[in-house]
Design a protein around this nucleic acid. Structure first.
Length: 471
RNA sequence: GGCGCGGUAGCCAAGUGGUAAGGCACGGGUCUGCAAAACCCGCAUUCACCGGUUCGAAUCCGGUCCGCGCCUCCA
């Protein structure tokens, strides 16, 4: 059996069978670049990164697209408030977004199309929809999708649109709609848009939100592709609308597997600015946490489970990661000696057992918990074997390269590069060794305390003192 | 109201019919001059509650309570 995913379309778990063998084409709803992304957003992006990396690990050639929404109500409003051009404004947050991806060790996907660079594609798609009788132009020059022309509408979200009523949240300028559930493909220019507009067959205006994903996914992945991901909140209406637009235009199935990520809550409550529990990645870095620690927390809960994010969980992550690092350093030191003579049976056995459990867990709809358990069991077994000298240096190399291999998926196993102690610290360590040699324990302990205050933990080992950065 | 998710140890979190993974924290021990790290032992007779089905249920069925999400542009 291969990889299985829970498909929102069918609400069941099914074997992943791509259109083209050993290839996976994925579309991922990306950020609206009007502000720094928050950790809730990154929960989704880390999930999508895990998906991508695991498919690659299992031998799939992945082609992934993540759109950048750089024109919508929020980007336009914020840019105007700041007195900047739209492009100038969104460029700032695009840059910040990519910096954050790097901090979280999220792999770059193949394409990051920006909405503003694909308006032509969107216009062409809208023209097709009008021609095929799925869209209509309103009096003021907006274009709407006609829900009634698409009988399958509501299949993904299982929402019955007949009950939808015009409510407070229906924007007043959309009076041209024939049905409240119809949605905008093209929005005629209005006052609030300022200088943001494009020429179209229906006059000056800008694209609706949903259409960019249909146009850009088609352009980069084809009319039918394998996987579409996003947050659970996107199921309705965004993804429902994407399906309607795309399938109405092409007459072909749009997406085979829909994967949706649950939300993140903070300290048991919905994250919101008014509750004061709203974090961007940068907020956490400012508090002294690392991207690696945040990644560990975000990846550790199954993607369809809501994740309760707490600062305590970041502290727990720090300790767990320190354990990984210590074990890896032990292995690296042993491997470095290169004394042969081939890998021992224990190492070989541990590697194959851990890999089997890893794959078994993640194959099952990316069930990370059993895969993580396999990792920590491996670490314990490795330490135990190291303690009784049951691992050869070649065995240590084998284990090390296995961990490197796993890290192509986890992305948090890499030992953080150690800051090198400066001259003063090294001198103190030497002095302490001299005192210890003379059994001047009190003096040695004083130096150890002093080093700790300077941010260094000294560990005495049979091979001499080891320095570790205190956090 | 409609659609959906969840309640497992101090915290996080697997397990969906065969007798409770893993992580963090905590307690005891081995090692160590003392520490640290590592390792060993311990840490839920019990899985929100009440009934039922079954030889057997955290897992299935019915009910109750509690928490959370989406319902027109929020991952």
């Amino acid at each position: 059996m291969g990889i299985r995913f829970f498909n929102t379309l069918t609400r069941t778990i099914a074997e992943f069978e791509p259109l083209v063998p050993a290839a996976a084409r994925i579309y991922t709803c990306g950020p609206t670049v009007y502000d720094y992304a928050h950790i809730g957003n990154f929960r989704a992006y880390v999930f999508e990164d895990l998906l991508r990396r695991y498919l690659q690990f299992r031998g799939y050639r992945v082609t992934q697209v993540m759109n950048l929404t750089d024109v919508d109500d929020k980007t336009i409003r914020s840019a105007r408030q700041e007195g900047m051009s739209l492009n100038e404004f969104t460029a700032r947050y695009k840059r910040a977004f990519f910096e954050d991806l790097e901090t979280l060790n999220i792999e770059r996907v193949e394409f990051y199309p920006a909405a503003t660079e694909h308006v032509g594609d969107m216009i062409a798609l809208i023209e097709t929809l009008i021609r095929k009788g799925h869209a209509y132009v309103s009096g003021e020059g907006s274009v709407y999708f006609d829900i009634s022309s698409f009988p399958n509408y509501g299949r993904l979200s299982r929402v019955d649109t007949s009950g939808l009523k015009a409510g407070a949240r229906v924007v007043h300028d959309e009076y041209g709609k024939q049905d409240v559930a119809d949605f905008a493909l093209w929005k005629a220019w209005d006052e609030a848009d300022g200088d943001v507009s494009w020429e179209s067959p229906w006059g000056r205006g800008r694209p609706g939100w949903h259409i960019e994903c249909s146009a850009m996914s088609m352009k980069y992945l084809g009319e039918t592709f394998d996987i579409h991901t996003g947050g659970i909140d996107n199921i309705f209406p965004h993804h429902e609308n994407e399906i309607a637009q795309s399938e109405a235009a092409t007459g072909k199935p749009f997406v085979r597997y829909w994967l949706h990520c649950a939300h993140l809550i903070v300290e048991g409550q919905k994250m919101s600015k008014s509750l004061g529990n709203f974090y961007t990645l940068r907020d956490l870095l400012r508090r002294g946490y690392s991207g690696r620690e945040v990644r560990f927390v975000l990846i550790g809960t199954h993607y369809r489970q809501s994740l309760n994010f707490t600062l305590a969980s970041l502290d727990a992550a720090r300790n767990a990661l320190a354990r990984i690092d210590d074990t890896r350093r032990r292995l690296q030191e042993l491997a470095y000696r290169r004394i042969g003579p081939g890998a021992d049976q224990t190492s070989k056995r541990l590697v194959s057992r851990a890999e089997e459990r890893f794959v078994h867990g993640l194959d099952d709809d990316l069930n990370v918990a059993p895969a993580l358990a396999a990792l920590f069991d491996l670490l314990r077994d490795v330490n135990r074997a190291l303690d009784r000298n049951a691992i050869t240096s070649d065995g240590a190399s084998l284990l090390e390269s296995f961990l490197t291999k796993l890290d192509r998926v986890w992305g948090f196993l890499e030992v953080e590069s150690q800051e090198q102690p400066d001259q003063e610290v090294r001198a103190l360590v030497q002095e302490r060794e001299r005192q210890r040699g003379q059994k001047n324990w009190a003096e040695a302990d004083k130096i150890r305390d002093r080093l700790l205050k300077m941010g260094w933990i000294v560990q005495d080992t049979p091979d001499g003192p080891h320095l570790r950065r205190a956090k």
